[in-house]
Amino acid sequence: MISYISLMAMPLVILIIIIFAVKEKKDTFDLFIDGAKEGIEITIKIFPTLIGIFFSIGLLRNSGIMDMVIKIINPITRIINFPTEIIPLALIRPISGSGAIGIATDIMKNNGVDSYIGKVASVIMGSTETTIYTIAVYTAGLKVKINKDVLIAALFADAVGIICSVIFCRIMS
């Protein structure tokens, strides 16, 4: 049922928009072409930012620094009873979307999809976003300084999301 609804979402949105436009006698195709042109310009504008971000994140991920950070914070998370298996996912989630999917899949495979740990990993994936990437994409090509506030608030939200994922999974399973 739910997979059917999510399959329907995109076509339905397009259909509703087009029907409204036709009903109100708009020049749909001309409008579409105008918009599509803007799309190209925007993509070209954000491309350099993407290269820069992917480059530095790729280095960070492959250098092995992450493994070291995990080792350091391991004792702390053990004290607050945070599942150790989740830490790599929690750390990579804000930085790399594909990295997070890889790690989450790995965690679910090793611990079982329907196990407590597997569920926590799923909930984290569903309730948080690739924060750094999002910030980079939305500020790319704008000539603005990225402000500390956004980063702090967004990472704080991620931390709350991850902790809540653990708590809610514990309560509900």
Binding site: I17, G35, I40, F47
Partner: peptide, 22 residues
């Protein structure tokens, strides 16, 4: 990512343009 983005970017910018006019 950029190449896959160009297509969806253009498509949805176009659809959005229509939506905004209604």
């Amino acid at each position: 990512i950029t190449i896959s983005l160009v297509g969806t970017m253009c498509l949805w910018s176009g659809i959005m343009k229509i939506a905004c006019s209604t």
